[in-house]
Design a protein around this nucleic acid. Sequence first.
DNA 1: GCAATGACTGGTA
DNA 2: TTACCAGCCATTG
Length: 105
Amino acid sequence: MTDDVPDEYTEEVLAVVEAIPPGRVMSYGDIAEYVGRGGPRQVGSVMSRWGGGVPWWRVVRSDGRPASGHEVRARSHYAAEGTPMRSQSDRVDMTRARWDGGSGA
DNA sequence: GCAATGACTGGTA
DNA sequence: TTACCAGCCATTG
């Protein structure tokens, strides 16, 4: 998709990312299953092209590590939102920060 | 149609 | 903990 406008799948992914409450995160695979289409690679592709318009730092890998090349920026947002981090690493505590898309808590 | 690529994932060393 | 490998899914050349 080299179009200059987001596709339907793209809008769905972006909608989920924007729906993630502060202090919470979702993995690429979780979002892929949430929208019920494609896979983690497709979500990542959408984020690389359109992630700039959504809180991309709330989307992390299964390890709790933010997107490659954005760890520093993501770390600032986590500190500002109070995201549960793991011991002195730049990784998010998925056990507590993982959002299921439910009631937000 | 095939090969390479990517903001991925899970398992093994 | 990090490093490497195989699998997965869609786009691109």
